[in-house]
């Protein structure tokens, strides 16, 4: 797999990662899970909107760009595409930040999970913690900025596992539809999740 330019800028600083989590916790302390959820979603949407729009003439070109990390939707993660519509994230891009947090601060604060419960109940069931809310909202907003053959790209979440091994799979009533769209069986999904962090699907309207 080819690494994108962002990937080559692999250096990071623990300070920024940890400070960012504490910034979010500060919002959670003041505004509760509902306020924090709004903030996370607005943060991710604002990020996607600040990135340039994309248009592709066909799905293959889009997949190529996605795999290379040239598309905005894969700018922050290394992905592979086992089928034409299914996308797999090998390592959650928040893993490093989470590791720095747990190494330097301690156990991940509960508010990160509480906000995910709020998101799952009020927005869409797919998040394990606050990081998933940012990530999944970003993917949705980024997909809306991409067209393939004139059609807008859509995103749906299938399953995610966080660095501390908590897992969230799409609800039972949605799963067969999503798997059918992704071109995976449930067994294949289980196998994929053994060695990857997130499985999602992209399609056009």
């Amino acid at each position: 797999m080819q690494e994108n330019r962002m990937g080559t800028l692999g250096s990071h600083n623990p300070f920024v990662d940890v400070a960012a989590y504490l910034f979010l916790e500060d919002i959670g302390d003041k505004q509760g899970a509902a306020g924090m959820n709004n903030y996370l979603m607005s943060l991710a949407t604002s990020l996607a909107k600040s990135m340039p729009k994309e248009e592709y003439s066909n799905w293959d070109d889009f997949l190529e760009s996605l795999r290379k990390g040239e598309s905005i939707i894969s700018s922050f993660e290394t992905v592979k595409c086992p089928t034409n519509l299914c996308v797999v994230t090998e390592t959650c891009p928040f893993t490093r930040g989470w590791q720095e947090y747990t190494k330097r601060i301690g156990e991940f604060a509960n508010i990160h999970k509480e906000v995910a419960e709020y998101y799952n109940a009020t927005v869409k069931p797919g998040a394990v913690d606050s990081q998933c809310i940012i990530h999944q909202t970003f993917r949705k907003a980024a997909a809306e900025r991409i067209t393939v053959d004139g059609k807008r790209v859509r995103y749906a979440q299938i399953e995610a596992v966080t660095p501390n091994a908590d897992d969230k799979r799409a609800p039972d009533e949605w799963l067969p539809i999503l798997l059918d769209k992704a071109g995976l069986t449930e067994t294949e999904l289980n196998m994929t999740m053994r060695n990857n962090d997130c499985v999602w699907v992209l399609y056009t309207e």
Binding site: D17, S42, S46, F94, I134
Partner: peptide, 13 residues
């Protein structure tokens, strides 16, 4: 990703 997202919020904030 989180760091870049936060920066995009500076204007908003």
């Amino acid at each position: 990703m989180l760091d870049v997202a936060l920066v995009s919020l500076i204007k908003n904030m």
